[in-house]
């Protein structure tokens, strides 16, 4: 039954990757990347149960940490550097994320 969960997660990951490839705007891609990371964490955890090696959970924790920081870093890069016309960005409050 863990096999069913693993297959379901794999199918979802493929679909999200399709959106990552096809997404018209850059924010679609970031959203898909973040979603893909969450699915990867769950996939690693399920895979650990499937192969009877709970050590995989440590990798899953690490991946969850890196995924969040990576998403925020990508968004901050998009907002304050190139990949978007900075002069058109409304500088509302200038708060960091």
């Amino acid at each position: 039954m863990f096999l069913a969960a693993a297959i379901a997660l794999f199918i979802s990951m493929v679909m999200v990757l399709t959106r990552l490839y096809a997404g018209p705007t850059v924010y679609d891609r970031v959203l898909a990347l973040n979603s893909f990371g969450t699915l990867t964490v769950l996939f690693i955890a399920v895979l650990g149960f499937l192969s009877g090696r709970p050590d995989f959970l440590d990798i899953a924790i690490l991946y969850a940490l890196i995924n969040f920081v990576g998403t925020i870093a990508i968004l901050k890069f998009f907002r304050y550097r190139s990949l978007g016309d900075i002069s058109q960005v409304p500088d509302k409050k200038g708060h960091d994320q």
């Binding site: 924010y27 970031v30 959203l31």
Partner: peptide
């Protein structure tokens, strides 16, 4: 460990969704 993973995603998932939405609105 599973509860730790769950709690972490429970907190950071909405935060990154909000970050993506806010960045899209700002741009």
């Amino acid at each position: 460990k599973l509860i730790l993973i769950g709690a972490f995603i429970f907190i950071t998932g909405p935060t990154s969704t909000h970050a993506v939405a806010n960045a899209a609105l700002m741009s």
